[in-house]
């Protein structure tokens, strides 16, 4: 069995019609005959559990590419500073790069309210409407994106639900994934959550303005990131002071220049 590593992943209980249309006849013919009395039978299925999401993500990717929109999926644990990073990032790139934001939280529209000041269209997704999920799935993004004029946007930033585990498993149709790690968390987060750091193409090490006040071994954190993902660029930033943002913004501009960047 071959698996496409970059494009595997994710599903959801939604889209029943979509699911049924594709999967109703999945028995692969191995059980065409009626079992006799007391029969035991194994039916081969051989399917990725999350392929409904995977197909939806590919649909999203085609939709975004068709509109010339580059999609960034930003992920981290709660409280690492994603929203503050986005506030400052949008202030730097808007209106030069017309951008929009989809922000996911389990509850509240607080992040959307904070980001609204940027001038970018912001769609808040609360996953409690979708079962209180700890991540954004592809169909949620499709629904949220329907509320954005994609033709007027070049960059769509998705601020995922704060969580280093589940969002790594769910492709949403993005072009690039960025993980945020802050220096108030443990240095060993990358080796505790290796899938997240394998799945992302860049890491932002945030809150470095706090380093003088912390017992934090920054080099150790960077080494751990590279242990899991040796070629990953790491941008040391402070969303509070703006330190390190030049390099991050340059990288983002370069990556978003091509929508086939992934």
């Amino acid at each position: 069995m071959t698996i496409d590593w970059l494009h595997d992943i994710a599903g959801y209980r939604h889209h029943q019609d979509f699911h049924k249309a594709r999967h109703l006849h999945s028995g692969h013919g191995s059980a065409r005959t009626v079992a006799s009395k007391g029969a035991r039978r194994e039916i081969q299925v051989v399917r990725r559990v999350l392929d409904v999401n995977e197909k939806m993500a590919q649909h999203n990717r085609r939709l975004f590419a068709g509109k010339g929109v580059f999609v960034l999926n930003m992920m981290s644990s709660p409280g690492s500073g994603k929203t503050t990073i986005l506030e400052r990032t949008l202030a730097e790139i808007m209106p030069r790069i017309p951008s929009a934001v989809i922000v996911g939280d389990i509850c509240t529209a607080h992040d959307a309210q904070r980001l609204a000041g940027s001038g970018a269209p912001v769609v808040q997704v609360n996953t409690d409407e979708f079962g209180g999920d700890c991540h954004l799935a592809a169909h949620v993004i499709e629904k949220a994106a329907a509320g954005i004029d994609l033709a007027a946007v070049d960059l769509l930033i998705v601020e995922n639900v704060g969580n280093l585990v589940c969002p790594a498993e769910f492709d949403i149709g993005e072009n690039v994934r960025v993980v945020v790690l802050s220096v108030t968390e443990g240095e060993d987060k990358p080796v505790k959550y290796p899938l997240m750091f394998r799945q992302c193409q860049a890491a932002l090490l945030n809150k470095i303005d706090l380093l003088p006040y912390l017992d934090y071994d920054k080099q150790r954190a960077v080494d751990y990131i590279h242990q899991v993902n040796p070629q990953m660029p790491v941008f040391e930033i402070s969303a509070q002071t703006g330190q390190g943002f030049d390099a991050w913004i340059r990288w983002l501009e370069k990556r978003s220049g091509a929508t086939d960047g992934r």
């Binding site: 069995m1 698996i3 590593w5 595997d8 992943i9 059980a31 079992a35 009395k37 007391g38 029969a39 035991r40 039978r41 194994e42 039916i43 081969q44 299925v45 051989v46 399917r47 990725r48 559990v49 999350l50 498993e169 990358p190 080796v191 290796p194 394998r198 242990q227 899991v228 993902n229 040796p230 070629q231």
Partner: peptide, 30 residues
């Protein structure tokens, strides 16, 4: 969680297995 070659230290690696999340089969009794 160390993703580089233990022999030559290269980071250029392909993950062959380990990302599965697959239903293989169901077993029925009638």
């Amino acid at each position: 969680p160390v993703f580089c070659c233990p022999q030559c230290r290269s980071a250029n690696l392909e993950i062959l297995t380990g990302r599965e999340l697959d239903i293989e089969s169901i077993e029925l009794y009638q």
